[in-house]
Design a binder for these strands. Structure first.
Lengths: 116, 116
DNA sequence: TTTAAATATTCCTTGACGGGAATATTCAAT
DNA sequence: ATTGAATATTCCCGTCAAGGAATATTTAAA
């Protein structure tokens, strides 16, 4: 009866586990931006911005559209949806556990029994 | 009216951005476990298991209770709740954006205008 | 009190990653 | 055709994190 456990590609979390990239996606929440705009608003040098954007892009977190000279980056919903589902598989279970505290406590106590 | 944007400590994502630690928390979804049990089920050597658990513990993702010889690790709800809130600050906005597609498209088009 | 189990810690080595600087590439403007 | 803006890419370097092996520590068992 246990539903399938959502497995999240580690790439998503790995890409987000860096301050600058975290800031970038936070920025992009408010809408698409060019590389220059991102670098500006975050005080990054252009090459670093491009590099981080490449990581985000390689991991499917953002998407590019070429507009002449500029490259416009925007967020892709999918990874965040997946991440949302993954996290829920934790929060939901943990709430459930708090509900019937008895089972939880007895489970802890079981550990005290000497093994056969 | 815009709610405060949830900021997720990078420590949480950083701790989860590793396959073994990801596996550990996935295991702990089903209930508390000892170090040995975790190492067993994941095919890890005990020292590595302890190390990863230390990282998870330092970042507040798990919690220990000493039981004689054994150390029983279990998940802490808070970081996951926070992560959930953070992710929602993305998914919600992105859905909203899909709703009024017009604003979104014009926003893209604005980029074509030469700068003053 | 000696022995063994469970866990944590230390030391070492190696590979990955991020920043800096320089350079390549593409396109617009003149 | 030349110049300049916007972006990507490369190379080098320092740091940091993860794995392996060995060892220390605590506690139960004999």
């Amino acid at each position: 009866m246990a539903g399938r456990e959502p497995s999240i590609g580690m790439t998503t979390l790995g890409a987000l586990a860096e301050q600058n990239r975290m800031n970038i996606v936070a920025l992009l929440r408010d809408g698409p931006l060019t590389v220059g705009e991102i670098a500006d608003k975050l005080g990054l040098r252009q090459p670093q911005a491009s590099k981080h954007l490449k990581v985000l892009s390689d991991n499917g977190l953002v998407e590019v559209t070429a507009e002449a000279n500029r490259r416009i980056y925007k967020l892709r919903p999918e990874p965040f949806k997946a991440l949302d589902a993954w996290v829920k598989s934790f929060t939901s279970i943990m709430e459930e556990r708090f509900d019937n505290l008895d089972d939880y406590l007895s489970e802890i106590q079981d550990r005290k029994i000497h093994k056969p």
